[in-house]
């Protein structure tokens, strides 16, 4: 499981980096889906099989297909690839790299400098998650359903042709 975690973490990092730097929208989306699969494997190796399955089904399945549909509707052809490349000149990389690099560097020093604590090897199955979801966090489930309803109505209203 340890090897699985480090391997999928490496794939997730590389996939995410490629996803945010590609100029072709579809390629970026495919790399993002690869990264999501790798993150799902991380979840699995950390003893969360239910969330790993939902990550693949809901995130990589439903949400990414939504983005895919919009990319198709926007009809981003070769001229948009060239435009994206124009939007990413060499000097545009400098400030984001420095800022994100400083952020991650300081955080890594703080996290890895602290005394390490091991994760538990036992996996927490769907039953335990369901019990916690519908007892302790019942109000959260209701709020989430309201949020989804508002998102549905809002997306319908905003997306309508006016």
């Amino acid at each position: 499981m340890t090897v699985l975690f480090y391997a999928s973490a490496a794939v997730a990092t590389v996939g995410s980096l490629l996803a945010v730097t590609r100029t072709k929208a579809l390629h970026a989306l495919i790399y993002l889906i690869l990264a999501l699969f790798a993150v799902a494997l991380c979840f699995l190796s950390l003893g969360a099989p239910f969330v790993a399955a939902l990550e693949v089904i809901v995130y990589a399945g439903a949400i990414m297909v939504l983005i895919l549909f919009v990319i198709m509707m926007l009809n981003l052809g070769p001229e948009s690839w060239a435009r994206e490349r124009r939007l990413l000149p060499r000097h545009a990389w400098l400030v984001p790299t420095i800022m994100a690099g400083a952020l991650v560097g300081l955080t890594l020093v703080a996290i890895l400098g602290a005394p390490q604590q091991a994760t538990q090897a036992a996996s927490v199955g769907p039953k335990a998650v369901g019990v916690a979801l519908f007892s302790t966090y019942l109000i959260g489930v209701e709020l989430a359903s309201v949020l989804l309803l508002v998102g549905l109505v809002g997306a319908y209203y905003l997306g309508a042709k006016k």
């Binding site: 480090y6 990092t13 730097t21 955080t107 996290i111 390490q116």
Partner: peptide
């Protein structure tokens, strides 16, 4: 236990958040 240290998981999480911010 040969389990993953929590700090390493948090480190990967921090890297992903930083990549998202970078993007």
């Amino acid at each position: 236990t040969a389990a993953v240290p929590t700090g390493h998981v948090l480190a990967v999480a921090a890297i992903l958040i930083a990549i998202g911010t970078f993007g």
